[in-house]
Design a protein around this nucleic acid. Structure first.
Lengths: 237, 237
DNA sequence: CGTGCTTTTGAATAGTATCAAGGCCGGTGG
DNA sequence: CCACCGGCCTTGATACTATTCAAAAGCACG
């Protein structure tokens, strides 16, 4: 916790944060005891196997939830950005089944389990909206599972680019969308290997749909790219 | 609604039902206006594209949530049994993104959206436990997505059998577990085709791990079967 | 100017989907 | 009671897709 640049709930500009749905007394209560920390790019927020002590809220930043694969590889199960929740409190297991780490500098707030429970018992809108958050994530996860069961690798890669764009709401810059992901990270989302990602990106480059500058992928024509995964369009709504 | 054999909340033997977490007044209130219906095997509960009017609770039975695939095929996204929730209320979209249908005769209760919202606003434990239900389902969905990204077809099929066993808590009968699923249904869970399911079942039969009698699959040695998907064991906890 | 890491590309291999044919079983009608 | 039909399951052959491995090119960094 960096007390120097600690952001109180009243200062916080994240309008989507669930805490803002609590009563003023509860906001103050949570504000006093909540943890807050700045995570640098690549830094772990939680690690697989650690005990679950509470829940993290993304105040600001980009976070990936990864699960270790056999052979040292990892899989990105979910991406989280502002106002998302991480580390579902006590879901059967007492330890985290996945790790979370910052993809860019991110500020996370931490609410301890007991406090979270009490806050839920006293703030119905808070609880209800968190419930709805999980409903939405479940829907997204189920859709992703459905799609990935029938898509080709090329489609998966394109879909992964979309998923990242949607989640991170990347900079819109004169008709083109900007995104920073390594081939390995894309592969970890798409559930394939960097080789295949490269092949797909080359294909997209040849068709003038994207252009690559270092780690930045510029999507020049998002509508043309959409067409390649057209049958799976229900998530674009 | 069959008023003849209508089961009131006070009569209901499903101890896991979320409604039981409400205050006595609210249980009575919900009891009075809730819908209830018996669905025969194969009957649709909700259909893709229909407007979302509320949420269904499985009082008793076995339900599959399916999503249509291109070419007429379907994919089983989730299985639901007693006390599970179906038809996540208003998750972004106003219409169901998937269909739900009974795999065996099932009794479902229906709670209309507005009533559900009011019940949530007045019963914190009710809301909190529903939230935790979704957290668990999200975790399961994410684990399944993770696994399916790296499993072979044989592993997927074996995992699907497990998933069904876990969810339906099938009859335990002198050391063997009983399950009734068609090859097509297994394929729809595993994300493959009936041909491959057949090959895997033949393999399991040869190794004396299962035996098949009509539509009934008897798992003779659950521990040996587990070994085939050993690296993916975290969901068996 | 090398060293190490990521990306790209090609070739060989393995795994899976698809197609087609045949077998098995239950139901129906002659 | 038997013959036929249709559905589901099984199995083999084939074609395709994706993974893996290896090598080379590009790039960042000390």
């Amino acid at each position: 916790m960096h007390n120097g640049d600690y952001i109180t709930c009243s200062e916080c500009t994240n309008t989507q944060c669930f805490v803002k749905l609590c009563s003023p007394e509860w906001i103050e209560k949570i504000n006093k005891v909540k943890g807050q920390m700045l995570y640098k790019k690549g830094q772990y927020i939680v690690r697989e196997g650690e005990p679950i002590n509470g829940v993290y809220l993304v105040q600001n930043g980009k976070v990936k939830i990864v699960s270790s694969k056999f052979g040292g590889k990892e899989i990105i199960v979910r991406l989280a950005s502002d106002a998302h929740l991480i580390g579902h409190s006590r879901s059967g297991s007492e330890t985290y089944s996945m790790s979370a780490l910052a993809m860019g500098d991110s500020i996370l707030c931490f609410i301890e389990n007991q406090l979270l429970y009490e806050a839920c018992m006293s703030n119905t809108k808070f609880t209800f909206n968190i419930m709805m958050f999980y409903v939405k994530e479940l829907r997204k996860s189920e859709l992703r599972a459905k799609y990935f069961g029938q898509m080709s690798v090329r489609e998966k890669v394109i879909f992964s680019l979309y998923y990242a764009l949607e989640t991170f709401d990347c900079a819109y810059d004169g008709g083109s969308l900007d995104i920073e992901l390594s081939r390995t990270e894309i592969a970890e989302i798409a559930g394939t290997n960097p080789d295949q990602v490269s092949r797909t990106l080359v294909f997209l480059k040849k068709n003038k749909i994207i252009s690559v500058q270092g780690k930045h992928i510029l999507i020049k024509d998002i509508n043309v790219m959409k067409k390649f995964i057209d049958p799976y369009s229900e998530s674009f709504t």
